[in-house]
Amino acid sequence: MTVIFKNGQFVEDTWKTVADGEDLPPSGHVIVPLDWWQAQRGAFEGSNVPIGVRIEPGTKIEDYAADISRFALIALAFPKFQDGRHFSTAQLLRERYGFKGELRAVGEILLDQVQLMSRCGFDTLQITDGPTLAALREGRATVLSRFYQPSPAAEAPVGTRPWLRKPA
C-alpha cells in the first residue's frame, strides 16, 4: 500500500496506480497515464467511475481543457526535483480550469518544495525522495508563515495588499 502525504501527515493511499496494459478494477479509484485515458476514453462514456490521470511534465494542459472536470484526481509527475513545470500546471488547473478534484504531486519532491506545492494548489504528495520522507516523518517540514503571493489554495483576505501578500 502506498503512503501519501496529506494535510501534514502520512496516510494510506486509497488510489491505485495502474500501469499500461493492466486491467481496470470496475470500482475505479485508479490512476492511469493520460495517454491510456485518451486511448480508452470511449469505454468510460456515461460512467461516473472515479478516474485519475497521471500527467508528465511538458504536457500542454490546455489541450485537455474539456476533460479536466471528468477526473476525480490529477497526478502531476515530478521525475526530477529541478523540473518545476508542474508548479505552473497546478496553478492553471486550479485557477484557469477550475479543477476541484484531488491534485497530487508524484515523484522526487524536496523538503523545501512541500509548502510551495501546497501553495500552488496540490492536496497530496506521493514522495519518492528518501531524505524528504525521513524529514517529514520526523516532523521537520520547512515552512514559512508569510507569503508575498496569493495562492489558489486559499482566497486572499480583504485588507491591505490583498493582491500581493498572504499572511498565514
Binding site: 529541478q82 518545476g84 508548479f87 518544495q113 510551495l116 506545492m117 508575498y148 503571493q149 495562492s151 501578500r165
Partner: peptide, 13 residues
C-alpha cells in the same frame, strides 16, 4: 516582494 520565494517560480529552467 512578489518574486520572493515564489511558489510557482522557484524551480525555473
Amino acid at each position: 516582494q512578489w518574486s520572493s520565494i515564489h511558489p510557482e517560480f522557484s524551480f525555473l529552467p
